[in-house]
């Protein structure tokens, strides 16, 4: 018991509990990344010690000792989600946090029993060089990523709010439309609106064009909404209706209008 309390094991167990709590309480991402590192190290190093046993590192084991924790973490993460799936527990933050925390805790305890108390890491001075190298390389990667020019696509999207239902001959038909601007703001000038039915342009349509407003659509800069109303043809049949909003060739919606007698 005295060995247990003096060793690294209590610190590892406390680390596992704290890390699990941080994940469960949805701490900010940078904190959770550290919490994950604690869980992964505790579970991975313990499992690695269980595999190697009390004999410690042999020559062959040196690289195994450094790498096996990573392998164990991969397998453990998969085992956790598969177990949750088999047990019918949702794969979400609480489920994964509890399962991972419990697994890490159990591995630390089993490693203590099977392989004895772990030792504190030695020679931290030797870590200075690798840490500096990691910082330099990360800076280089960030610099290389920053060299890429930012790509902004500028385009407009036109959509009809809903396709028209079947109507009777001569009835009024109203279609709503929405223009969304991406990458740049929509032009301030109102777009011309015209309607072509069965290949013939309607001389008169009731077009209401709203102002450019902010939009909640993800990625879009702004939007303009409007409606266009016209009288359906008298004759029964299926008509193609082209509603053109703006001057660009592509900027039209094409719907089928079924006119009943």
């Amino acid at each position: 018991m005295r060995t247990f309390l003096r060793g690294v094991t209590p610190a590892l167990l406390a680390g596992v509990l704290i890390a699990t709590a941080l994940v469960l309480f949805q701490a900010p991402a940078p904190v959770r990344v550290l919490a994950f590192a604690v869980l992964a190290l505790a579970a991975g190093l313990s499992a690695s010690r269980i595999v190697r046993g009390r004999a410690g590192l042999t020559d062959d084991d040196a690289d195994v000792g450094y790498s096996l924790p990573g392998v164990v973490v991969l397998v453990l993460m998969l085992a956790v989600v598969l177990a949750l799936s088999v047990l019918g527990i949702a794969i979400d933050t609480p489920g994964i946090a509890w399962a991972t925390g419990a697994s890490a805790f159990a591995l630390v305890v089993v490693a203590h029993v099977v392989a004895g108390p772990p030792a504190w890491p030695t020679a931290p001075r030797r870590a200075l060089g690798p840490v500096l190298a990691v910082v330099v390389l990360c800076a280089a990667v960030a610099g290389a990523a920053a060299m890429r020019p930012a790509q902004v696509e500028r385009y407009t999207q036109l959509s009809v709010d809903e396709t028209p239902p079947s109507v009777g001959g001569g009835e009024r038909v109203s279609l709503g439309w929405t223009l969304l601007g991406y990458g740049s703001a929509l032009p301030a000038a109102e777009p011309p609106v015209e309607v072509v039915i069965g290949g013939r342009r309607l001389p008169e349509v009731d077009a209401e064009t709203g102002a450019v407003t902010a939009t909640g659509v993800q990625g879009a800069v702004d939007q303009r909404r409007g409606t266009v109303a016209f009288t359906a043809p008298d004759g029964a049949g299926i008509y193609d209706v082209h509603v053109k909003v703006g001057a660009a060739d592509w900027s039209e919606i094409v719907v089928r209008l079924v006119v009943n007698q």
Binding site: V23, R32, L39, M77, V81, S85, I91
Partner: peptide
């Protein structure tokens, strides 16, 4: 489900 499962676990744990 290996890839998606491990990714989901790491995502949930790290944020």
């Amino acid at each position: 489900p290996g890839t998606s499962g491990i990714t989901a676990a790491v995502h949930e744990l790290t944020g």
